[in-house]
């Protein structure tokens, strides 16, 4: 009986790859609270939820882009976060009434960056990695030039929203969870979602099946950039202002959560719950290594080793 059950379980786990990141999250959390003998277990979780939320926002966008198939990746996320954050802070000028202007400007930046990205990919026929890299240079420069020395606090409303909690659960996390559900449904049941999945499996077949390949890819790159700009706004709201380097860690993090979360790097298969699991895992891993007193060097090495380990295990099976 046992082996049969195990086989069934293993088969289920393979069809639901998000389970691994959640198991890993649980394991890391248990190890952490075992070390602290249960002290602060709740706080660690809440903090993880808050910080994971930001990673999830950009992770979802990156997930959609990666799902478009091999070679598709958005490297302009950090620059967009910084520029959108700076623009929102500067235009809002800490005034509630101007908040809408700031947010609209940030969203506008997202749309523009996404359009520019896909324009380069399409018109210059260059791989997305180079296109988004070139874009990121320019966006980053614009952010630096535009936001130099800004010390502007976010509008109180934005700050309140970004830090509010209901029954101990961050409001922002709830909103993003809702957004994740929308994206999950869109992937399974909307024309756009199905188109993205089809293009990721086989772009040529998708075109011949009558799918609007160009429009879908364009929309996906815009979506990713818009999500990055939203992340820039809420992140500055949360941390009391925009900083030029605040997007830097999200380049690697966004790709890492996509890979660890069970989205196929070969394209055509996306996984929303996995993004959450992986984002929580990444944060809790760092917390655990900190609790254990690991040096920054060890933390970096562990992160890299885990990313590589996951693609060695998961990526190989796809091929």
């Amino acid at each position: 009986m046992m082996p049969e059950q195990m086989i069934r379980w293993a088969r289920w786990a393979r069809s639901e790859p998000w389970i691994w990141s959640w198991l890993a999250t649980l394991g890391v959390w248990l190890a952490t609270i075992a070390f602290t003998q249960g002290r602060g277990s709740g706080e660690v979780l809440t903090a993880a939820l808050v910080f994971a939320t930001f990673t999830v926002i950009v992770g979802l966008g990156q997930m959609m882009v990666v799902t478009l198939g091999p070679g598709n990746v958005d490297l302009s996320i950090p620059g967009t976060i910084a520029l959108a954050g700076c623009a929102a802070m500067k235009l809002t000028d800490s005034e509630n009434p101007l908040l809408l202007v700031g947010i609209l400007a940030a969203l506008g930046i997202g749309v523009a960056v996404g359009m520019f990205n896909y324009g380069l990919i399409r018109l210059l026929r260059i791989p997305p990695i180079i296109a988004t890299l070139s874009t990121s240079f320019i966006v980053q420069s614009a952010a630096i030039a535009y936001g130099r020395g800004i010390r502007i606090k976010p509008a109180p409303m934005l700050a309140d929203f970004a830090t509010a909690r209901i029954l101990g659960v961050p409001v922002l996390a709830m909103v993003v969870a809702l957004g994740s559900i929308v994206i999950g449904i869109a992937l399974a049941r909307s024309r756009f979602g199905r188109s993205v999945l089809a293009i990721g499996q086989n772009m040529r077949a998708a075109r011949l099946a009558g799918i609007a390949v160009d429009r879908t890819r364009f929309a996906t790159y815009v979506l990713s950039a818009v999500l990055a700009s939203i992340c820039g706004v809420v992140l500055s709201g949360f941390s009391g202002g925009a900083a030029l380097d605040m997007g830097d860690e999200y380049l690697l993090a966004s790709i890492a959560v996509v890979v660890i979360g069970g989205t196929s790097v070969a394209g055509g298969k996306a996984n929303v719950p996995g993004i959450w699991g992986a984002a929580l895992f990444m944060y809790l891993l760092v917390t655990m290594l900190n609790t254990f007193g690991a040096s920054p060097g060890i933390r970096l090495i562990m992160t890299g080793v885990i990313i590589i380990g996951v693609i060695l295990v998961a990526g190989g099976e796809e091929q």
């Binding site: 091999p70 990695i129 690697l252 790709i255 890492a256 790097v265 060097g297 090495i301 890299g304 990526g315």
Partner: peptide
């Protein structure tokens, strides 16, 4: 690894960049 496991080099080398930096920080913080 890239050849045998068909791994995308972008992700593999991204992971390696953490590892290299980690060792570098260990040597010279």
């Amino acid at each position: 690894a890239v050849q045998l496991r068909g791994l995308p080099s972008i992700v593999l080398t991204l992971g390696m960049s953490f590892v290299w930096s980690g060792f570098a920080v260990l040597l010279l913080s």
